[in-house]
């Protein structure tokens, strides 16, 4: 999963990744989550996802 125009990583563990985006957070839950690569404008997360949430 790739997220463009992110505002940084808020929380990162192998079960839960929270990415700051404009107007809120993207919360990804799953297992063996791994950050493929991080760039200023793009972040790619791989692993077995269980849930993708968007919180304002």
């Amino acid at each position: 999963m790739s997220v463009e125009n992110h505002r940084g990583i808020v929380e990162y563990s192998s079960e839960r990744v929270v990415i700051a985006v404009s107007e809120g957070h993207l919360v990804l839950t799953g297992e063996e989550l791994m950050i493929g690569f991080v760039y200023q404008e793009e972040i790619t997360i791989t692993g077995r996802f269980r849930r993708v949430e968007f919180c304002r």
Binding site: Y12, M34, I35, F37, Q40
Partner: peptide, 19 residues
């Protein structure tokens, strides 16, 4: 997380990040 963010800000490229 802060470590990662700082790296990204400074243009340090990281990949295959595993917790």
């Amino acid at each position: 997380e802060r470590f990662l963010n700082l790296c990204v800000q400074r243009g340090i490229h990281l990949w295959n990040i595993v917790k």
